[in-house]
Computed example of a mutant assay.
Amino acid sequence: MPGRRYSFEVNRVSTAPPETLFRLETEGPLWSTWGRPLIVQARWARRGDDNPSGVGAVREVGLWPVLLRERTVEYELDRRHVYTFAGSGLVRDYRAEVFFTPNAAGGTDLRWTGSFTEFVPGTGPLALAALRTAIRFLSAQLVKAADTGR
């Protein structure tokens, strides 16, 4: 029996331009500079096909021995990044999309969405709470890093 499908959306506003946030979010090893204390280690498991951070790239983030592998499946420079979990058994069919939209104030409207199917029936609400909380934290850290230039 297939599990239920869940989704979430997190929105933030940054004073930094889209290209700054895009670079920080797509460049795998940079996650350990702005994602702490949640992300302590970040590295490339595989570089992208045409661009090091682009389609086919796999970043590993977290803290050993718990490292999530995230595979880039769509990459629109300075505009949109889409990734899935590569090999994770926590949820099925996870897909995250991060949108970087210039705003009238000269900054960026950031929208980070995610969706997945629960791996074990009944575990979806807990997985949803964990993923939404993690993305809320990471998006706030990303904006803070972009806005302060660190």
Rank of each mutant, 00 (worst) to 15 (best):
T108Q: 05
V10I: 12
R69E: 02
G114V: 10
G87S: 08
R23A: 14
G106R: 11
A105W: 06
R12D: 15
L63P: 01
V55N: 04
V73Q: 00
S32N: 04
R5G: 10
D147E: 02
T108G: 03
R80I: 09
Y6L: 11
A105V: 06
G56Q: 01
R47H: 10
G54A: 10
A146G: 15
A45D: 10
T33M: 13
F22K: 05
R46H: 08
G35P: 05
T117F: 13
T148L: 10
A42T: 03
P2Y: 13
H81L: 08
A105S: 13
V55D: 03
G89Y: 06
Q41S: 15
S53T: 11
D109M: 11
V98T: 12
G87P: 06
G28C: 01
S53P: 10
A134F: 13
T15M: 03
T33W: 13
P121V: 00
D49F: 04
T148Q: 07
W64H: 15
S53I: 07
L110W: 08
A145Y: 06
V120T: 14
T15P: 00
T33V: 15
V91H: 06
L63I: 10
G48T: 05
F100R: 00
F119S: 12
T15A: 03
V98C: 14
E60L: 00
D49V: 09
F22D: 02
T33P: 12
L77N: 08
S32L: 03
L63N: 07
F99H: 14
L110F: 04
G106F: 06
L24D: 01
T33C: 15
D93K: 12
A57D: 04
E118F: 03
S139T: 03
A145S: 03
V120M: 15
T72K: 02
N11R: 15
A129D: 15
G3A: 05
H81Q: 08
R80F: 05
Q141G: 00
V91T: 07
S14W: 02
E76Y: 09
R71I: 05
R92Y: 13
S88D: 12
L126S: 13
G124V: 12
W112E: 07
Y94V: 12
V58T: 00
P52G: 09
L126F: 14
R92A: 15
R59S: 01
D50M: 03
T148A: 07
G3Y: 02
V13L: 06
R43K: 11
R136T: 12
Q41D: 13
R36F: 07
L21E: 01
R95D: 10
R4K: 13
G56Y: 00
T133N: 14
G48D: 01
N51C: 11
R36Y: 04
L142E: 04
A130G: 12
L63V: 05
E25K: 11
R92F: 13
R69L: 02
G35N: 05
V91N: 06
N103K: 03
R95V: 15
Y6Q: 08
W112G: 04
G54R: 06
P2N: 10
D109T: 15
P17M: 14
T133W: 14
G48M: 00
V13N: 08
L110S: 02
R69D: 01
W34L: 01
A45T: 11
A140D: 10
L24E: 00
S7K: 11
R47A: 14
G48A: 01
E70D: 04
F85H: 11
Y94T: 09
M1D: 15
W31L: 14
V10D: 13
V61K: 04
L110A: 02
T20V: 12
L38H: 09
F100L: 00
E19I: 11
